[in-house]
Computed example of a mutant assay.
Amino acid sequence: MAVAYSAGADSTALLLAAHRRWPGRVTAFHVHHGLQAAADGFETHARAFCALHGIALQVSRVQAAHSLGESPEAAARDKRYTSLAGMAKQAGVDGVLLGQHADDQAETVLLALSRGSGLPGLAGMAERFERHGAVFGRPLLGVASADLRGWLQAVSHAFIEDPSNTDVRFTRNRIRAVLMPAWNACFPGFRTMLARCARHAAQAQILLDDLAQLDLIQSGEPPAMAVLRVLGRERQANALRYWLRHSHGVAASAAQLDELLDQIADCRTRGHRIHLKIASGFVDRSGDRLIYTPPDII
C-alpha cells in the first residue's frame, strides 16, 4: 500500500495512520511539483520524516506548470496523478491512498454549486476511483481537517504548511477562506450535510449511467440518431453525455448539448449535416450515426 505524502497535515496524518495499521508495508509517494520555491523544503521534510519513522519513501519530480489557457490547478492535479500512478506501477503496489478529508469534500461540492455543475460535479470526490491505470482511495472523507490537525498536535508530529493554500487567487482557497466560515456560522455541521448531498448525487448518477447504458445498447455505438429520437429529450441528453464521457473522455457544455439535441431533432434528411464543436473536438453526422473526432485527428 502507498500513501500520497505531500508533507502537509492531512497526508501526514494519513501516512502515520496507515503506518500504524500496516507497519513495514506502507510506502510514501512524494511528488515534487516544482511550482514554488518551498517545494524543496517539502521534499527535505518528507525525507527526514520518513527516515525518522522508518517509512519507505519514493520521490518523483515533475514540471506541473500549466499551458496557455489551462487551469493551473487542473494541470498540477493531472501531473500529480500521472506521477503517482507511475510510482505505483514501478513499486507494484495495489493502491494509493489520498489525504482528502471532509472539508475538501465540502469545498468540492460548493465549487460545483458555484459553477452550476450537474450530478457528476455535485457528487464530489469518490472514495475509490481509477486513473492512469492505478487505483486510488480517499479514506478520510468523513474526517474533518480540524480533527486531523488536532491529533497531529496532540502527538507532536510535525508537518508543513503549504503557503499556496492561503493564495486567494485560487477559487478553492477563496471558498476555504470566505465561504466555508460563513456556511459554518449559519449551518453548524454543514460538512456532514454536504457529504450526504454528495452521496445522494453519486447514487442518482449511477442510476442515470445505468439508463444511458441501456439506451446505448439499443442505439449502438456510435449512437444512431433514429433510435435517439424515439427517446425524450432529457433521456437523449443523458445517453449522449454518457457516450461522450465514457467513450471519448469529454463533457459537453449545456449550450453545446442543447444545440446537438436540436440538430438531431431537425436532422431528418440525408443532406442535413451535423458538425458541432464539443469540448476540443467535433461531433459529426456519419450516415444516421453520430461520431466524435478528437482534436489530434482533426
Rank of each mutant, 00 (worst) to 15 (best):
E70S: 12
T82P: 01
L68Y: 05
D78R: 12
Y81C: 04
A76G: 11
V93D: 08
G92H: 10
K79S: 14
Y81K: 02
S83L: 00
L84W: 15
D94V: 02
A75D: 06
V96T: 03
L84R: 15
A76F: 11
A88W: 03
K89I: 06
D94W: 01
G69A: 09
V96I: 01
A75H: 02
E70W: 12
R80M: 00
A88F: 06
G92L: 13
D94I: 01
G92I: 06
S71T: 11
A85Y: 07
V96K: 12
S67Q: 13
S67D: 07
D94P: 03
K79W: 11
A85W: 05
K89Q: 14
G69L: 07
V96Y: 10
K89P: 00
S67R: 15
A85P: 04
G95R: 11
A76C: 10
G69M: 14
G95M: 15
E70N: 12
R77H: 08
Q90L: 15
A88R: 07
G95N: 09
G92D: 10
S83Q: 02
S71K: 07
L84G: 09
A75T: 03
G92M: 11
A74M: 09
V93N: 04
A88G: 04
M87K: 09
D78G: 05
E73M: 12
A76H: 10
R80N: 02
E70R: 12
P72V: 01
L68Q: 08
P72W: 08
V96F: 11
D78F: 03
A88M: 04
T82I: 07
E73R: 14
S83V: 00
Y81Q: 04
A85I: 06
R80V: 03
M87L: 15
A85G: 08
G69T: 01
G86E: 04
S67F: 07
D78L: 14
A85D: 02
Y81W: 09
T82F: 07
A76W: 11
E73P: 01
D78S: 10
Q90Y: 13
E70Y: 10
E70V: 15
A76D: 07
P72K: 06
R80C: 03
A74C: 09
V93S: 04
S83H: 00
L84D: 06
E73W: 12
A85T: 07
G95E: 14
R77L: 01
T82E: 08
V96R: 12
A91Q: 11
V93T: 06
T82N: 04
A85R: 06
E70K: 13
T82K: 03
E70F: 11
V93K: 02
K89R: 15
V96W: 08
G86K: 05
S83W: 00
G69Y: 08
D94M: 00
A88V: 01
G69E: 14
L84A: 10
L84N: 07
A75R: 06
A91R: 02
G69I: 04
T82M: 12
S67H: 13
G69Q: 12
R80W: 01
K79R: 15
L68I: 09
V96M: 10
M87P: 01
K89A: 15
E70D: 13
M87H: 07
G86Y: 02
G69P: 14
R77Q: 08
M87N: 08
K79F: 09
P72R: 07
V96E: 08
V93I: 05
D78C: 02
T82C: 06
V96L: 02
L84S: 13
S71G: 06
P72N: 08
M87T: 03
K89G: 15
K79T: 07
E70M: 13
V93M: 04
D94H: 00
